[in-house]
């Protein structure tokens, strides 16, 4: 579905008087591909470049070098006007749904906003889509009139997912979708994401830092350390018996806070 090939992203380092040093490489020659109906996990800690990769995969940030292919087509240099179909089909879900939801808008308006922006859809059809999206995330139909602040963290994240689903996408980029949630709510959202994937045949790019969550969600995992992919493989193998020293360190840290570990 989505291929990232030899992606590098660097930012110029600005000196005090505008003299640049070596540019800072936040992503260094990373390649991976997302298969239809499957989940690929990018796991790393803060500063690993995982969120930059999410933004590059969403074509919100241009890579310094490398290629982004969507369904075989090179979209790396495409102008925004040529990305309309891509934007419909590849949707983000972010960690903080509250930050992504305008506090003054009611749920119905929040959900239909991407359709309004895309244009060309009758009001009644938009309303049908909103109702379907709420059903998909297992929220009651009367949530359309609610304001974000009246929702719990888990309900807000459900709205974030519903909003991503409204354009009937083929790929979801899940950037730490459960990191801000209580353990009990996290389990509900992870189950929901799996149900939606099965029902709709979606591909997921799952970005996170928790190996236990990644094992549950992902078919394949790649581990990022300071912008570089240090290990990749089937999720069971990476979490079960990693080769790389950095991955082993991550696993050991996760075991420390794993209740039966």
């Amino acid at each position: 579905m989505l291929n990232l090939i030899n992606i590098t992203k660097s930012y110029p380092r600005k000196g005090l008087f505008g003299r640049g040093g070596e540019p800072a490489r936040v992503v260094d020659d990373v390649s991976f591909s997302l298969q239809g109906g499957r989940t690929f996990g990018l796991i790393g800690e803060s500063g690993s470049g995982k969120s930059t990769l999410a933004r590059i995969a969403l074509r919100l940030v241009d890579p310094t070098s490398g290629t982004v292919l969507y369904r075989g087509e090179d979209i790396t240099g495409h102008a925004p006007s040529r990305l309309m179909a891509f934007r419909r089909e590849v949707q983000p879900v972010f960690q903080s749904a509250s930050g992504a939801l305008d506090p003054r808008m009611r749920v119905a308006a929040l959900l239909e906003q991407p359709l309004v922006i895309a244009g060309g859809m009758a009001r009644s059809e938009r309303e049908d889509r909103v109702a379907a999206a709420l059903r998909a995330v297992e929220l009651p139909a009367d949530f359309t009139t609610r304001l974000p602040r009246t929702l719990s963290g888990g309900q807000r994240q459900r709205i974030g997912i519903a909003r991503a689903l409204i354009t009937e996408p083929k790929v979801l980029i899940l950037d730490e979708p459960v990191s801000a949630l209580d353990v009990s709510v996290q389990a509900q959202i992870l189950n929901l994401l799996k149900d939606i994937q099965q029902a709709r045949g979606l591909s997921y790019l799952f970005i996170g830092h928790d190996l236990a969550v990644a094992r549950f969600m992902c078919d394949e995992i790649a581990v990022l350390e300071r912008g570089r992919l240090v290990e990749r493989g089937p999720a069971d193998q990476i979490v079960g018996s990693p080769d790389n020293a950095y991955t082993k360190g991550l696993l050991e840290a996760s075991r420390w806070s794993d209740h039966r570990g």
Binding site: G154, N191, A212, R255
Partner: peptide, 23 residues
């Protein structure tokens, strides 16, 4: 319920057990 809801490193269930409803 809180213990069961936590994904584990050593197994991959088809679904996580959840505590139904909300606080």
């Amino acid at each position: 319920g809180l213990l069961d809801a936590r994904p584990r490193l050593d197994e991959k269930p088809a679904r996580l057990r959840t505590i139904g409803g909300v606080l």
